[in-house]
Design a protein around this nucleic acid. Sequence first.
DNA 1: CACGTATTCAACCGGATGGTTGACGAACGT
DNA 2: ACGTTCGTCAACCATCCGGTTGAATACGTG
Lengths: 119, 119
Amino acid sequence: MDDELSRVFAALADPTRRDMVARLATGDATVSELAEPYDVSVQAVSKHLKVLEEAGLVSRSRDAQRRPVHLEAQVFDLMTRWVERYRREAEARYRRLDAVLAEMTHPQDTHHADEENVS
Amino acid sequence: MDDELSRVFAALADPTRRDMVARLATGDATVSELAEPYDVSVQAVSKHLKVLEEAGLVSRSRDAQRRPVHLEAQVFDLMTRWVERYRREAEARYRRLDAVLAEMTHPQDTHHADEENVS
DNA sequence: CACGTATTCAACCGGATGGTTGACGAACGT
DNA sequence: ACGTTCGTCAACCATCCGGTTGAATACGTG
């Protein structure tokens, strides 16, 4: 897992971590606050946060012995760009297929080339 | 890894699989066609495709002994909804913080409550 | 200083993951 | 019917991942 996008997707592949992101979207929180809803050790939560941090999804500051966790907005843009790009392409292809099917069912004006192999 | 969103994110956490998605966005392809660019065995590629299929990102049909792989558009919506939701919230919080900071630097009309602890 | 609180580090464990090789099945082409 | 091509299944291996427990660190307070 080297590049950022891989780290981000991997981080969000875990339901607990996604849940933490959802939680952090409403406001910053400390590690123990974040740990409270789940019945895993605080250390496990700390590990999850490390994963989220290394993915750039959260940042941590310092307040006495606390370590408030903050959700970072920027990384979401990276994901949005990737997802939207291929979503658009996939949908465009889907619409194009639709058109082809429509043409096949009422084939007036059939001018498409013969069986171009999809490569 | 039980729920769909987890499977989708996990599937896309691998650069090779993201690459295949990018490749498939331009058109359907067979397993061996997809395997060609990478220097891994065809079996490994087959495994990757299984992961993508179980995540609902691709589907496979049958054409003689070929097994054309097709990118599915719908699942992208699921991701878009999740990502966009928290991106919006995170950005909204960011803008709000901006406003608070602005108020602190030129504190005319300071009417915010005293130190409400972020819980 | 000593103590409690909050968090992380280190070592360990079982299960998943990504890769390999080898064998098999399914569908042409001749 | 035979061999060839395309793809998957099975077993194996090294590594990663999410969890644990136990010790260490960092900071505020008595």
